[in-house]
């Protein structure tokens, strides 16, 4: 595995939310590893992944928190909303209940993030065409009414997965360029990282834990 280059100019923090079993972890895995995890265990608390993408000629590192969908972890997962620049809200196109819960997820997100957080709605499992339970048009309308970006995707085939993550980043980047998103504001979830590889100034004082034996 080739080591990822450690050069990028921005860090965007994302969270992935949605009901249990809608495929949040699989979406993350498909995005970071380009592989489908067929027997993905239930997430305990939170998982984490990163990937560096290219948006408008800028290298951007996405730090993605994948949260547990189970209700019992809600208290833990809520502490990860804060400071997210992008929120991917996922439902399962083959299970209407997961779609019905979207409004409560949206309320949570709006309450716990800042107004500039980009919320992207993903209808996962689009490959299971004959089991469809939520029409595209219906979800599209919900997204439009609430000002969300929307796409139907499949973590299994990889269809639209890349797009969802990248489009979110593009939107965030646009907000930065428009000046709608203040880089210096706390909770913006975006950090400028001007440092370039090869910068050695602070490295020698790199964290060395004290030890006592």
């Amino acid at each position: 595995m080739s080591a990822p280059p450690y050069s990028y100019s921005y860090i965007f923090k994302y969270i992935i939310i949605g009901d249990m079993g809608v495929g949040k972890s699989c979406l993350l895995h498909q995005f970071t590893e380009k592989k489908f995890m067929s027997d993905c265990p239930h997430t305990i608390g939170v998982e984490f992944g990163t990937r560096i993408i290219d948006v408008c000629g800028q290298k951007i590192k996405l730090q993605i928190w994948d949260t547990a969908g189970q209700e019992r972890f809600r208290a833990v997962t809520r502490s990860y909303y804060r400071g997210a620049a992008g929120a991917l809200m996922v439902y399962d196109t083959t299970r209407r209940t997961t779609y019905n819960h979207l409004s409560s997820w949206l309320t949570d997100t709006r309450n716990l993030t800042n107004p500039s957080t980009v919320i992207f709605l993903i209808g996962n499992k689009s490959d299971l065409k004959d089991q469809r339970d939520v029409a595209y048009e219906e979800a599209k309308q919900f997204a439009d009414e609430n000002g969300l970006m929307f796409v139907e995707a499949s973590a299994k085939t990889g269809d639209n997965v890349e797009e969802a993550f990248v489009e979110t980043a593009k939107k965030i980047f646009q907000c930065i360029q428009d000046g709608r998103l203040d880089l210096n504001a706390t909770e913006s979830g975006v950090q400028h990282k001007p440092s370039q590889p090869g910068r050695q100034t602070l490295t020698d004082q790199s964290p060395k834990p004290s030890c006592s034996c």
């Binding site: 450690y6 440092s195 590889p197 090869g198 060395k208 834990p209």
Partner: peptide, 16 residues
């Protein structure tokens, strides 16, 4: 601040 430049040189770290 230093995580990336550290990881470029080494993949080993000591914790307590």
């Amino acid at each position: 601040m230093d995580g990336d430049s550290f990881l470029m040189k080494s993949s080993e770290y000591t914790f307590n």
